[in-house]
Design a protein around this nucleic acid. Structure first.
Lengths: 204, 204
DNA sequence: ATAAAAATCTACACTGTGTAGACTTTTGCC
DNA sequence: GGCAAAAGTCTACACAGTGTAGATTTTTAT
């Protein structure tokens, strides 16, 4: 969306605009934290980034585009992490590891993740981004369930459907917990892990 | 919030305003369905209800108040239902009954429930309303879990915490399913029921 | 029939968004 | 070093939506 190709591939010189773009996104994140999406105005973001509204519109076409870019930045980060964390483990420790990673993700990026969820319907692009992210999780959960002996398939008591429900459980539970504190997040994690394990029949 | 005491206690005559207020809420619900909250303007609602913007502000102080009233109206309905559906049953059929009731609720009121969830953060009053509703569900789920032999308490593997996570699972799963179709809702229900049962150790 | 209450309207002030066009700075090249 | 193009920035404006004020009409109750 920016008016110029975003410098990703290690450009020789870093354009002034790249710095500004980052400043805009950072400011947006900060404002989101203590004003919320609705209360935050484009003017606020511009001011925080040290430019005027007019200048901001050179980088992003709208308020929604700014937030979409912020979500994209964060979510790319999640994708990398999930690519790294491999899947060659036994079910039980795999579940524990996955939940631990989830706690870390929500600790670090809870605000943006909550924003992404909130805007998923109203901003289609963000909806896409978040759906894709959720799908990654669902696939991962499905794999663990199958390795634990749950039958693969889409019937209500088979891996795929269960994974989807478990994913939403984790999303929503962490969504709420991350608004409170790190401790709540840890408790939420323990509960979700327990239910995930019983669903995989690993609590005999 | 209306400019006059809302006629609840079977007034002898029904004020013209009561009809209008209902018309406003009905219009709001209809518009929410095919425009969404953001795109829907106060002018649209007024027009749909057959009055001007100015007149609408006689009934409600803001767009948010209109939607809050709509949520309140719907949610009161849920509360009645949940009060009626008693709790004197064995765990297994109780779970089935609860899920069936949940399907009905989401079939009938999915749109408003989704709206309530979406606006929970930005509109504190709606947040209150929805929290209260969720608490009713959590208490009910807790009761069922305990009757199924799950230890009461707030530790991660005890009834209270589990009930909360299961509630969020159901909320989020139905939230998504209700955007698609009745069939999806039914499938979602079956999956949630299965996970709820395994969590209660009722799948030997 | 009439006065108070309820309901409605028009007009306005304000805030926030997004756009237009002029102006300034930076960059790459001869 | 000088200079054109690209990149970045600004001010000013047009527009849409919200909420308010006050005048005016309709309903209701006596």
């Amino acid at each position: 969306m920016p008016g110029r190709p975003s410098a990703h591939g290690r450009r020789p010189t870093e354009r002034k605009g790249d710095v500004r773009e980052r400043a805009i996104l950072d400011t947006c994140e900060a404002l989101l934290a203590h004003k919320g999406y609705d209360a935050m105005t484009v003017g606020d973001v511009a001011q925080g980034a040290g430019i005027t509204r007019g200048a901001l519109y050179f980088y992003f076409g709208s308020k929604q585009e700014v937030v979409t870019a912020l979500v994209a930045r964060t979510v790319e980060h999640l994708w990398e992490r999930s690519r790294v964390t491999a899947q060659t483990e036994e079910p039980r420790p795999a579940i524990t590891a996955a939940m631990q990673r989830t706690v870390e993700l929500w600790s670090a990026h809870g605000l943006v993740m909550r924003t992404a969820i909130d805007l998923s319907l109203t901003v289609p692009e963000i909806g896409e981004l978040w759906n894709h992210t959720a799908d990654l999780f669902i696939v991962a959960i499905t794999a663990v369930l199958e390795r634990a002996g749950v039958q693969g398939g889409t019937a209500p008591d088979q891996a795929s459907a269960m994974a989807r429900a478990l994913c939403w459980m984790i999303e929503r539970t962490f969504y709420h917990a991350s608004q409170e504190s790190r401790e709540k997040l840890q408790e939420a994690s323990a509960t979700c892990e327990y239910i995930w394990r019983t669903s995989a029949r690993l609590i005999p």
